Simulated assay, not measured.
Amino acid sequence: MAYSSLDPFFPQEAARKKGGGSADFEVGLIYGMFAAVIVVAAPPLGAHVTKIGPKFMLCAGVFLIGGSTILFAFVDAIASWRSFLVICFFARALQGAGKAAALTSSWTIVVTEFPDKVSTVSGVIETFAGLGFMIGPPLGGALYAAGGFTLPFFFIGGLLLACNVALIFTLPTSSEAIRCYGNNTTNLSSWKLLRNVWIWMTLIATSLVPASFSMIEATLAPFLERTYKMKPAKIGLVYLLCCGVYIISAPFVGRVADKWGTKRVIIGGLFVAGFAEFFLAPSSLLAFLPDNEMWLFLSSSVVIAIGLAMASVPTISDMVLSSRGMGFEKSVALNGVISGLWTSFTSVGNTVGPSIGGLITQKTNFRVSTTVFAFALVAHGCIYLILSLCFRSRLK
């Protein structure tokens, strides 16, 4: 919610602060700083989670996110454009560091506490994360309309700090599951896991899903306005449909993955989302399909959302299973390293998706962009499937 709450008003305020003209490039860099810090910070945080402590890292991360969100409230009082940019970059970097700590530690706790139901719990977490992302923009816009630039940041930042107080007093320092695992801090780093092809297969899927989602998010609005003459209100409903289908399907996908096998669900999701994305615009490769058919676009959007949930929700559980297949023993240290890698590669996708998708769309059109990302999903699904069939024992 803290990440997306400034979407409705911050770009316009930044342009006003600049003194006229577009500030799209600078705003893009400020937004990109968030994901870039997560990419860099998450793996070392995961490697040191046992030394720092999962609870302390989680609380410190939430505190950083809340404090940096409140810091954003004061940038409106800065007259200098350069000083405005510096403080915005600093605040966004703190938000990224906080999210890296919070995500890495929370996933470590989840994998440790629910070792046999990681996908099921992941689905529930994805649902609430999606709800926060959906609520953020309308809440931020409403607060901005009610109290100006500072109110959204004070409200959401204060809410995060209040939640942090609740975490401090309610979350146990060392649960029974963590005590049973033991704080094994044996020389364990991300590089040991990255020597395994199955870890790479899953991490690539982990990046492709947010890349595809964020590419569509960044480039869809102009396409809908130009092709279907949609107004902003209706465009918002399309975004709501995609996010809604994802968060509703995520818990069910998690339960299915825990029962039928994580790799089966991930590979199936890559194919489902990839093939459906060919139909979204639709691709020029499917010349036999009618253009500008709303039913085709909406049905494709629904299938893409379900497919991306299938390819995303079981990934961290699959990494845990792959690491055990490599001979690693259960430990909080291992769970921390896996969580750090997963968080980092998710942010890689969130960074690459809109930048590459935006560039392709700008140089060509939305149809070509969706075709490229559809090929990426299907191609990775094919490679993953072939490897799994060659080693059938891994297709679980």
Rank of each mutant, 00 (worst) to 15 (best):
K234R: 13
L334Q: 04
V332I: 13
S331W: 01
K231N: 13
F10M: 10
L280F: 13
S189P: 08
L71E: 00
Y246G: 14
Y144S: 00
F297E: 05
I304H: 02
W200Y: 13
S300Y: 01
L395M: 11
A162C: 08
A42R: 05
M319P: 09
A101P: 08
A309H: 05
A211Q: 10
G148V: 05
V62E: 08
G236E: 04
P222A: 10
S119F: 02
D258N: 06
L377Y: 01
G268D: 06
F328K: 06
W342Y: 15
L161N: 01
L298W: 01
A15N: 08
R82V: 11
V238W: 01
N350P: 05
V337H: 06
R392I: 07
I248L: 15
G357S: 10
A333K: 14
L208N: 04
M294R: 10
F149L: 02
D24T: 15
R179V: 13
I70P: 00
G244I: 11
F114A: 13
S105C: 05
S4R: 11
L280G: 09
G268I: 04
I204N: 01
T112A: 13
P251C: 08
F169H: 12
Y246P: 12
P251R: 03
K330H: 08
P44T: 12
G261C: 09
Q12T: 13
Q12D: 12
K229C: 07
L94G: 14
S312Y: 14
A101L: 14
I178W: 04
A102K: 02
N292G: 15
G381I: 02
T120P: 02
R324D: 04
F279P: 04
E217S: 15
A221L: 07
D116S: 07
F9C: 03
M294S: 12
P354R: 10
V245P: 03
M1N: 04
L286C: 04
S207D: 05
G353T: 10
R16N: 08
A376C: 14
G336F: 02
I247V: 15
K363Q: 14
L385D: 00
F72Q: 06
T371I: 07
A374T: 11
C88H: 00
E113R: 06
T262H: 13
V209S: 10
S300L: 05
A73R: 00
N184W: 00
F328M: 10
T343R: 01
A129K: 11
S339C: 09
G141E: 08
K18G: 05
L188S: 07
